[in-house]
Design a protein around this nucleic acid. Structure first.
Length: 459
RNA sequence: GGCCCUAUCGUCUAAUGGUUAGGACGGAAGCUUUUCAAGCUUUAAAUCGGGGUUCGAUUCCCCGUAGGGUCACCA
């Protein structure tokens, strides 16, 4: 383990990290990944995780976005230990600003407005014009000459600090020890370090994360189609799966484990194993991870979540299904096999893939014919034979018991000749689970009824 | 354009001087008791280029190239 810290005095202090979004848009993968890493790092070190809403831009900040951020973080389970709104700290910002001006480290600068009605004065930092060097926990040493920054603006007026100044004062006064943020902030770091030095503060550790990219390798943003976390929630993703997936973008455990609960991540996470290059957001892999998480949730939760979702979608699509929960309990394997997210259930309802579980299907005689079979009397005779097998079964039989009864017949007559019409008579579908599973779920008597009704249509 | 960052299969990544360059997602094929799904097995697929350093470079250095970020009285 190499110690790359800038400031050895931080070593014995409690770790304090923060997530500091501005409420100017919905929270999406492009920005909440830094929240995940900050959170994991703080929890892992028994430290504090602060949420700070950076709402100093009154033009663009919106309450609804702040609510979206809170909602999203809350849903993800990234609980903060302290909460601040930057706009509520203006007294403090003013205090530091005045101190800086009094000490000559900053000054009020007369400006000629670029646009009519623009400001005639702003507050600028007196740039010492030096090289700033810091050690990034992920990238190592970074050195930048700050001369070309000039005497940059730190406040629009004594009561209106801009980003760089407010951030530094807040991070310093909140005791933030580790700033974990996106790579897009690397170029902001030198000027923020200059501000730290101007107020006589020691600057914290920095860890600049690689960016989350879209398919074209550009920074993910809502303009470029990033979905909000709340949209993933609506699509039926699990919060733990989202966190799991995000953690794997730019980090790996050094083992081949890919599925992690959030608690496991807290233990396994390691900032020094974070990647330097950006990572493209891949929803396919997210879906796979989600599926793995869905497999692992408690059965009762799985059933209730499916039930609620299906009830809602069924209602919206004019299905009057009853006893949804007991059907799902019986058919839970079918659901596990066929879904990555709970939102997939919506599609199943819309595509009529689930109707047979709740009501007898409309069976087309044509569909009952296996492959090249054209003789309906043979179809009927095969189906009758299959019916005789089913009729010997107790009402509740397992898939294996059903299989054991039917397979000998299917082997004798031809698998497709027996199994295909049997399955179609039960589901009415071209594609569906196998007949054994369906009979197990429907029960013997309901299955016989459906076979009889298919048989009737063949006459 | 200036400054900064980055570079292993299509994608996420492992391997920090010595491996047949490994895994996962996705793809393909096959198997699995008919279809679909799932599962299993197999398979294709990568070190950006050029120079060094070295007995030996994915790995270290330099130069290119490419991509990205950032250059506000936004955050």
């Amino acid at each position: 383990m190499t110690d790359t810290s800038n400031n050895t005095s931080h070593q014995n202090k409690m770790v304090v990290t923060r997530f500091a979004p501005s409420p100017t848009g919905l929270l999406h993968a492009g920005n909440y990944r830094t929240a995940v890493f900050s959170y994991l790092y703080a929890r892992q070190h028994g430290g504090k995780f602060i949420l700070r809403i950076e709402d100093t831009d009154k033009e663009r900040s919106k309450k609804e976005y702040e609510e979206n951020i809170m909602d999203s973080l809350n849903w993800l389970g990234l609980k903060h230990d302290e909460f601040y709104r930057q706009s509520e700290r203006s007294e403090l910002h003013r205090e530091y600003l005045e101190k800086l001006i009094a000490s000559g480290k900053a000054f009020i600068s007369k400006e000629t407005p670029k646009e009519p009605g623009g400001r005639t004065e702003v507050i600028r930092l007196k740039n010492p014009n030096k090289k700033v060097k810091f050690t990034d926990l992920i990238r190592g040493d970074i050195e930048v000459d700050t001369t070309d920054l000039g005497d940059f603006v730190i406040a629009k007026s004594i009561t209106e600090p801009i980003f760089h100044f407010a951030v530094v004062v807040d991070d310093y006064t909140m005791g933030v020890t580790h700033i974990v943020r996106g790579e897009d902030h690397i170029s902001n770091t030198p000027r923020q370090i200059l501000i730290y030095e101007a107020i006589g503060a020691q600057y914290p550790e920095y860890a600049h994360l690689p960016l989350v990219l879209d398919a074209k390798r550009a920074k993910l943003s809502k303009r470029r189609g990033a979905l909000a976390i709340t949209e993933y929630r609506a699509k039926g993703f699990l919060p733990a799966a989202l966190i799991n997936y995000m953690s794997l973008m730019g980090w790996n455990p050094g083992t081949e484990q890919e599925i992690f609960s959030t608690n496991e991540l807290v233990k396994a996470f390691d900032l020094s194993k974070v990647q330097k290059g950006g990572a493209i957001f891949d929803e396919k892999k997210l879906r796979w991870i989600n599926k793995e998480h869905v497999r692992r949730i408690p059965e009762a939760l799985f059933i209730s979540t499916c039930t609620e979702r299906i009830a809602q979608t069924a209602h919206a699509h004019d299905r009057s299904w009853t006893h949804i929960d007991s059907v799902i309990r019986k058919a839970k394997e079918i659901f596990h096999e066929r879904m990555d997210t709970f939102g997939d259930l919506d599609e199943m309802v819309k595509n009529n893939e689930l109707d047979y579980l709740f009501e007898p299907p409309q069976v087309s005689t044509d569909l009952l014919k296996w492959k090249n079979q054209t003789d309906l009397t043979i179809v009927a005779s095969n189906l009758t034979k299959a019916r005789e097998c089913v009729a010997t079964l107790p009402e509740s039989s397992t898939k294996d018991e059903i299989k054991n009864i039917i397979m000998p017949l299917a082997e004798k007559i031809g698998r497709g000749e027996i199994l295909w019409p049997l399955r179609v008579s039960l589901t009415g579908l071209e594609k569906s689970p196998d007949p054994f599973t369906v009979i197990e779920v429907l029960g013997t008597s309901e299955s016989l009824k459906r076979i009889d009704s298919a048989l009737l249509s063949l006459k």
